[in-house]
């Protein structure tokens, strides 16, 4: 099917690529169907694009690329909601808040996007028992911005 996207123009997508959010993304109660589309060639950044609302897209990334020690435990409730049977089926993304300059971009490690890639179910999970916050600098050691 064809959808209109925020960053990729009109896009032909397959039904089987569509993720269903089992609970609304906080702040967006009306959208539950999304698709993950690559934003760069290296495969570091993706758009989490709403199927229902072309203007709604998040920039997401693999958190372990930037935070190798990132670690949390999923509650049983979430495992049930996402019908997770194996750890192998889990895909984790973090939502980025892109800033200008890009060096100031932050990752929301407190509320990761958890996907069951076998069943295409997803949820933004709010970690209750955690020290992670909504704004972790992607490049914490970069003190001086490089002018590009």
């Amino acid at each position: 099917m064809k959808i209109n996207t925020k960053y990729h123009g009109e896009k032909e997508i397959e039904e089987k690529e569509v993720l269903t959010f089992v609970r609304p993304i906080p702040g967006f109660p009306d959208e539950d169907k999304f698709i993950v589309l690559p934003l760069d060639e290296e495969g570091s950044f993706f758009a989490l694009q709403s199927i229902q609302n072309e203007q709604l897209a998040f920039v997401i990334s693999n958190p372990f690329l930037f935070f190798p020690d990132y670690d949390f435990t999923l509650e049983n409730t979430v495992i049930d909601q996402l019908e997770l049977a194996s750890e192998k089926d889990v895909l984790v993304f973090t939502i980025l808040t892109v800033q200008e300059p890009f060096e100031k971009t932050t990752a929301n490690l407190q509320a990761p996007i958890i996907i069951n890639q076998k069943k295409n179910l997803a949820k933004q999970v709010i970690l209750n028992q955690t020290n992670y916050i909504t704004k972790h600098l992607l490049f914490p050691n970069k003190k001086t911005a490089v002018k590009g």
Partner: peptide
């Protein structure tokens, strides 16, 4: 509410 706010900013 903080997550909601961050999501709005992020989108």
């Amino acid at each position: 509410e903080q997550i909601m706010q961050e999501n709005r900013t992020a989108s």
